[in-house]
Every structure is written in structure tokens, then in C-alpha cells.
Computed example of a mutant assay.
Amino acid sequence: MATVELTKDNFDEVVTGGGIVLVDFWAAWCGPCRMFAPVFERVSERHEDVVFGKVDTEAQPELAGAFQISSIPTLMVVRDKVVLYSQPGALPEQALEELVTKARELDMDEVRRQLAEQGSRA
């Protein structure tokens, strides 16, 4: 699947639609972002069942602010409306593949149970 441009107008719809969504927060002036872009694109082509979205932080400052993005690239993984991963830095291709595999293998019922336990302790 090709990457999808995410904007304030379509972000919620895409990310809360269910399944796995990888979001790359980037900007055109960012050297590491430009180096990571082809890696993100290649991995997206191998995983038709996963949405790979890109947020241009210059064009979408509201989204960058909402997620407190202070370094780019930042990669976020969302599955079934739960943020599983959010870290700055470009990943090598193999590490990105492993991240997709781990997100796919998670037992989301167990993840939600753990989140509920953490919330009740707070």
C-alpha cells in the first residue's frame, strides 16, 4: 500500500478506523526524514493490511502540537485506537519490519486490560 498523506481533516478517520496504522511525522527540510522516507515507502508496499500515513509537520502544525512532536522524524504505531509506540528517530528497514510484526502479534485484549489496570492505579 502506498503511503497516505494525513491532515487535520482525515487524521482521526484514518487512525481510528481500526487495524494497524504507522504514522511518520516529518518535514521536507529534515535530512533524517528524507533518508527515512524511502524505507517507510518500501515497508508500506510489503504490508497491504497496514496503513502507512505521513504527517508533514510544517503543513500540519496542529497535529504535530497535539502529539507533542518535538523531534522529527517521529514514528507512531496505533492499533485499534491504542498508541503502541511513539519514538523520534529514523529506523533501519529491518527494525521497521520488526515493529510491524510486533504490532501485528500483540494480543490487544491483553493490552487493553493492562491499560485499564494502570488507569485504575492512577
Rank of each mutant, 00 (worst) to 15 (best):
V78Q: 13
D80C: 12
V23I: 15
G53M: 01
R42W: 04
E45D: 05
P73R: 11
T57I: 15
S44C: 01
A2R: 15
W29G: 04
T3W: 02
E98N: 06
Q87M: 09
G89V: 13
E62H: 04
P92H: 00
T16D: 12
K81E: 15
R42C: 02
K81N: 15
F40S: 07
P61C: 04
D12F: 06
Q60T: 04
L91P: 00
D12N: 15
N10C: 09
K54A: 02
M1K: 00
D49Y: 04
Q114L: 14
K8H: 11
V100H: 12
S70H: 11
W26T: 13
L84G: 05
L63P: 04
E110M: 12
A2S: 14
F40K: 08
V43L: 02
C33Y: 08
E58K: 11
A90R: 10
T101A: 15
A103Y: 06
M108S: 12
C30N: 13
G18S: 05
Q94F: 00
E62L: 07
V21A: 14
Q94A: 13
E58I: 09
N10K: 06
E117V: 13
G119Q: 05
M1P: 03
A66M: 09
C33R: 12
A27S: 12
V15F: 11
W26D: 03
A28H: 10
A122F: 00
V39N: 00
Q87S: 07
F67S: 02
A64T: 07
N10Q: 02
T101N: 12
V43D: 01
T74L: 07
A103D: 02
T101M: 11
T74C: 10
R113T: 11
K8I: 11
S86Q: 15
V43W: 00
S70C: 06
R121S: 08
R121N: 06
W29Y: 07
T7K: 08
R79C: 10
R121W: 00
T57M: 07
P61V: 05
M108F: 09
A64Q: 09
V23G: 03
F40D: 08
N10S: 09
E97G: 03
L63H: 08
T101L: 15
T16E: 14
E105V: 07
P38T: 05
L75K: 02
G89E: 14
Y85F: 14
W29I: 06
M108G: 14
V77L: 12
M35F: 05
I20D: 08
D109R: 14
L6Y: 01
C30Q: 10
F40V: 08
V55F: 04
D80T: 11
S120N: 09
V23K: 05
P73L: 10
V39H: 00
A95F: 03
F25A: 10
V4C: 03
W26E: 06
L96A: 03
E98G: 00
